[in-house]
């Protein structure tokens, strides 16, 4: 037990430097943006006074320089994104047209490999199953739960329970579920919850994570378990925001709870629903930790992000890994288009 607190001090010092840097960067930026226009304003005032005193024609009001402000507001974000994400995305795209060691150009070889290799096609279909099921199931589960617990007793407790999985990492959650799915041979003491349940009902224990295609669904359950809480909290908040008078009026009109849900609740929370579905879809496309922890992509459960990592880092196939990543970029296009439409509507409305 020779824990040395003195050894920890440099870390805390570094943390302090970080916080100081934060204060300087953000504070400095705001101060700059405040001070500079103020200075220009003062100078203009002075010019105006001087002009009126000397009887010269008043200087024209300068054009508002909105662009300058935008530039400074956006500068840190754009710089960081360029370094951290745009450059890597471009690099990945280039690598996807090159061979394993990123030396020679191979044209579309990596892409034709992707669609001709049976196991990779399997990966692509798995991803499709994930991205259809997860947003759908997690959102509906979250929505139903939110509606049911709305104004129920102990609502806060009920909501905390469902949200709790989010506080555990994907890796942690997957380890927990691995225990649920664990399997021991027939006749042995089952250590997995699911198999205990099955055997107590008189069924045969199964090695769940090895039963394709069922295993993909079982992994999806983990993702839904984590993300349903997210959906529930956002949607529940939106439900709370529906103006009370609308609900009251509907009630007086004698609508059934069913009609209420479809005609009042659902249209009112549409924007929140969109946020949830979009966020979940993107998160699902990129799902990596769950598959990696639970099966490492074996037994036909691999998804694109997982296969990409394996190809690029474990097998040293940079080109093939990159091609998978680029395919991921392409999959997000429909969501982006949808988002553009949304933005247009919003601007017009």
């Amino acid at each position: 037990m020779d824990f040395d607190f003195a050894a920890e001090q440099p870390k805390l010092l570094m943390l302090m430097y970080g916080l100081i840097a934060f204060a300087v960067v953000v504070g400095g930026l705001l101060l700059l943006l405040d001070a500079v226009p103020a200075w220009f304003a003062r100078r203009r005032d002075a010019q105006l006074i001087a002009a009126s005193a000397s009887g010269a024609p008043l200087p024209r009001r300068p054009k508002q320089r909105e662009g300058i402000f935008a530039l400074f507001f956006l500068l840190p974000t754009v710089l960081l994104l360029t370094v951290g994400l745009v450059v890597p995305a471009i690099r990945t795209t280039l690598l996807s047209f090159m061979d394993a060691g990123s030396v020679n150009w191979v044209g579309l070889d990596n892409y034709s490999w992707m669609f001709s290799e049976g196991s990779i096609v399997r990966v692509l279909t798995n991803t499709l199953v994930w991205v259809i099921l997860v947003p759908l199931v997690a959102t509906s589960f979250g929505l139903i739960y939110a509606v049911l617990v709305d104004r129920a007793r102990l609502e806060a407790v009920a909501k905390s329970l469902i949200f709790m999985p989010m506080a555990i990492s994907f890796v942690g959650a997957s380890i927990i579920w691995k225990f649920v799915y664990a399997y021991r041979g027939d006749g042995e003491q089952q250590i997995g919850l699911l198999n205990q349940l099955v055997t107590s009902l008189g069924g045969e224990p199964k090695s769940w994570l090895q039963e394709a295609p069922l295993n993909t669904l079982l992994l999806i359950v983990i993702m839904v378990w984590i993300q349903a809480g997210f959906a529930m909290v956002v949607l529940s908040a939106a439900i709370k925001a529906i103006p009370a008078d609308i609900v009251e009026a509907a009630r007086l009109d004698g609508v059934t709870p069913w009609q209420m849900f479809w005609q009042i609740t659902l249209p009112s929370i549409r924007p929140a629903l969109i946020v949830v579905v979009v966020t979940l879809s993107i998160a699902t496309l990129k799902v990596f930790d769950i598959v990696r922890t639970a099966t490492n992509g074996n037994y036909d459960t691999s998804v694109i992000a997982n296969e990409m990592y394996n190809q690029a880092f474990r097998y040293g196939q940079n080109g093939q890994g990159s091609a998978l990543a680029v395919f991921l970029f392409i999959l997000v296009v429909p969501i982006v288009i949808y988002q553009i439409r949304n933005l247009r509507q919003q601007r017009e409305g």
Binding site: T77, L81, V83, G84, L85, V86, V87, P88, A89, R91, T92, I282, L285, K286, F288, A305, M308, Y309, A312, F313, G321, S322, A325, L328, F329, L331, V332, V336, Q339, I340, L343
Partner: peptide, 18 residues
């Protein structure tokens, strides 16, 4: 929209360049 779309870049691919 561009920033929004960047959400899809898997961070695994950004590790080496960064």
């Amino acid at each position: 929209i561009a920033i929004f779309a960047l959400q899809i870049v898997p961070l695994q691919m950004a590790l080496v360049p960064l």
